[in-house]
Nucleic acid binder design. Structure first.
Length: 125
RNA sequence: GAAGUCGGCCAGACAGUCGCCGCGCGAUCGGAAACGGUUGCGGGGAGGAAAGUCCGGGCUCCGCAAGGGAUGAGUGCCAGGUAACACCUGGGGGGCGUGAGCCUACGGAAAGUGCAACAGAGAGCAGACCGCCACAUGCUGGCAACAGCAUGCGGUAAGGGUGAAAGGGUGCGGUAAGAGCGCACCGCGCAGAUGGCAACAUACUGCGGCUAGGUAAACCCCACUCGGAGCAAGACCAAAUAGGGGAGCGUACGGCGGGCCCUUACGCCGCUCCCGGGUAGGUUGCUUGAGGCCUGCGGUGACGCAUGCCCUAGAGGAAUGACUGUCCACGACAGAACCCGGCUUAUCGGCCGACUUCGCCU
C-alpha cells in the first residue's frame, strides 16, 4: 500500500534482541543510564550492528509472580517494537523496578516512551 | 419456591490493525545434495490448577552376578483397580448430620520400657478426706430396752468431693453398712458355630464375675515396600588460546641434557601434517503418549476390552502479546520449560445433571 521506505518498520525480529551473555556484558560494562520509578534503562552504542537491540532483565525481586514478570517483558518489548526505528543504533538493557507491577499498561507505555527518548540523547563516554 | 449434598463442565465474546514462536505448501537466492537465508499463503500457539514439589512412574547416566542380611526411610482395617502409588473404587469398624451425605494414620497396649501437669485421700499388683456401719470405753438422758455425743480400733468403694480419666452399668436380692457377694438384663473378654474371598458381623451356643484403663503422628513389636542422582540427566558437532600424543622434514647456525672435561651419536627446543580429550558456541534429548474422543461389550464401581476417528504449544534471557471498537453476566486464581498418574493449596462468576429436607399447589 504505502512506500516501505517511508513507513517505519514495526517488526521485531530476533536479530533486534540481546540473546547471549556476551551481549549483556557488553552493555553492563560501560552503560549510560536513565531511569524513572518504573524502569531503569541501560544503553551503549554498538558499532558492530546496524539496528537498535534490546535485552530484558526482570528479577524476582521486581515481580514475584511469573505472570507479572511476563507482563512486564511483553510491555517492554511492545514499546521497543514501536520505537525501534527512531531511537538510534544502540544496545539497551531494561530492568523493571518493583513499582512497575502495580502500574497500568498505559502508564508503563508512557514511561518507556520517555525513557527511550532520554536514552537516545545521552552520550556514552 | 427456599435451604442444602454430590458429580461434571466453562474460564469473557466478537471484529480490525501492528507484532512474536513452531508447522505445512509455494516462490526466490546460495549449494552437487542435505540444508540454510528472504518472502507469500494457510493453519496452530498456556492451565484447571501450568503452582507447591508432597508421593508414584517413564526416560537417562552411575552403581550392582542371582539371592540373603544390616542400617535407614516409608506404608499400615479388607478386597479390587492400576505401569505404580501415600491415589481411585467397592466393602467393614468408629464418629457427625433430621436427611442426601460427610469425616476417619483405623495393625499390635493379656513382649518389654516410658509418660500422665494441676487438683485430689488415692492415677495402676489403687485409694478411707467427708460420709455410712459394727464393736469397745467414757459422758449425758432414761425405770429399762435404748438414744445422743466424744474418743479409740475396725469394716465399707453405695453417696459426696477432686480430676481429662477413680478399676463395668441398671435393677432386685443380700448385708451391721456395703461390695459381682448372688441373680436377671445390658456391656466386656475367650472359645465355638453360622454368614462373608476377607476386614468383620450375629436377636446363636458355651465359658469367665470382670481379670485385660489410656497413650504406639512415645520408644517399640509385627507385616509389606524401597540402590543413587536427575533434562543444568544424557548424546552429538565443535572454533580461538594453551597444553598432550603420533608421523615426517631439518639437523645449516645456536642453545640445553646425561653434573670432571672433550668428541661422535641420541633426545629436547623449530617447521609441516595428522590424531584424540575438551571450553565458548551450536545441534539433539523435545513432544505420538500408560494420548484424546465417539460407539459397543464386560463389571455394583474404579476400570478393562474391541472397532473407528483425531494429532492438539514446544520456547530457549525464554514466543503465546499490544492497541482500538462493540457487547455482556464487567472477567478470579494465575504462565508450560523432559513427559505422564495422583495429592495438596489458590480461585470472580456461571451452566448442567442426580439427590435430600422444609414449605406451597393439585
Amino acid at each position: 500500500m504505502t512506500d516501505p521506505s517511508q513507513t517505519p518498520s514495526f517488526a521485531f525480529p530476533r536479530t533486534a534482541r540481546l540473546t547471549c551473555k556476551g551481549d549483556f556484558d557488553f552493555v553492563f560494562a560501560k552503560a549510560s543510564r536513565v531511569a524513572d520509578r518504573y524502569f531503569t534503562v541501560l544503553s551503549r552504542h554498538q558499532p558492530q550492528v546496524d539496528d537498535a537491540r534490546v535485552g530484558l532483565v526482570v528479577s524476582k525481586k521486581a515481580a514475584k509472580r511469573a505472570v507479572d514478570r511476563n507482563r512486564l517483558k511483553r510491555l517492554v518489548r511492545e514499546s521497543f517494537r514501536q520505537h525501534r526505528s527512531s531511537i538510534g543504533v544502540r544496545d539497551f538493557v531494561v530492568l523493571p523496578r518493583p513499582a512497575a507491577k502495580q502500574a497500568s499498561n498505559n502508564e508503563l507505555a508512557n514511561s518507556l516512551a520517555n525513557l527511550w527518548r532520554r536514552a537516545m540523547t545521552t552520550r556514552t563516554c
